[in-house]
């Protein structure tokens, strides 16, 4: 632990950036996988097949999941610790706080990373409990797993997303995620020392858009499921 604390603030930001970028890539893969919800007949067949395909890797899949957990853990712990230090570095707060504008990249999103981060973390725990560790339904498709039973995640999804509260919870969490990604994406490059006048201008200007696209992409599912129900 002491050796972790000793790691310089700059290096900690590099850790946050590397894990952040990795998690960002994970989200994209996750989002692409989610497209299968909309394909296949009967509804849910492709999705369940995709889930089964991933699980079929067995131990490798578990390692990947643990790895992912590790990245999340590292990202969160480093960020929380950094925030603690940051909080201590200004013991008396300003009466008035403002945005300088101009070249500043300070936004509501950038100043609330720890809040959006914690909400997203809580959301993730809920999300994992809901689905990964949720009720285990089975179903059978002749074309999947040689006709043997596979987990029917699609049924779980339709059940969960039939509740307005769940959908509302997802909407709020994913909106906050979009803010988190909005600052996080461009900021990761800056934290890694990747700066270029044009490069930074472009990454910064697409950052919030990307965050929004990814969040909307995820949000489509609960809304769609809720809608068709």
């Amino acid at each position: 632990m002491t050796s972790f604390i000793k790691v310089s603030s700059v290096l900690k930001k590099i850790i946050i950036a590397v894990t952040g970028i990795s998690l960002f890539l994970f989200l994209i893969v996750h989002l692409l996988g989610n497209i299968t919800i909309f394909t296949g007949s009967p509804p849910g067949r492709d999705f369940n097949a995709y889930a089964h395909f991933l699980e079929s890797f067995g131990i490798l899949f578990t390692i990947a999941e643990l790895g992912l957990l590790g990245f999340f853990g590292l990202h969160i712990i480093t960020a929380l610790y950094t925030n603690l230090v940051n909080f201590k570095s200004r013991k008396s707060r300003y009466a008035v706080s403002s945005f300088a504008g101009g070249k500043s990249k300070k936004t509501v999103a950038s100043t609330s990373m720890v809040i959006t981060g914690v909400v997203v973390m809580a959301f993730l725990i809920w999300h994992v409990l809901q689905f990964r560790l949720g009720p285990y339904y089975e179903t059978i498709y002749s074309s999947v797993n040689n006709g043997e039973p596979v987990r029917d995640l699609y049924r779980l999804i339709t059940e969960e997303f039939s509740s307005i509260w769940v959908v509302l919870g997802y909407t709020i969490s994913l909106t906050l995620l979009s803010l988190h990604l909005g600052h996080g994406f461009w900021s990761s490059f800056q934290s890694l020392g990747i700066y270029g006048k044009t490069f930074t201008r472009i990454t910064y200007s697409v950052s919030y858009l990307l965050g929004l696209i990814i969040s909307l992409g995820f949000l489509v599912i609960p809304l769609y499921i809720f809608w068709i129900n």
Partner: peptide, 16 residues
């Protein structure tokens, strides 16, 4: 770090 300054999280307010 030792002097007690915080970590940069790329708000860019400093440049402005």
């Amino acid at each position: 770090d030792e002097e007690g300054f915080g970590a940069c999280s790329n708000h860019g307010e400093c440049e402005a």
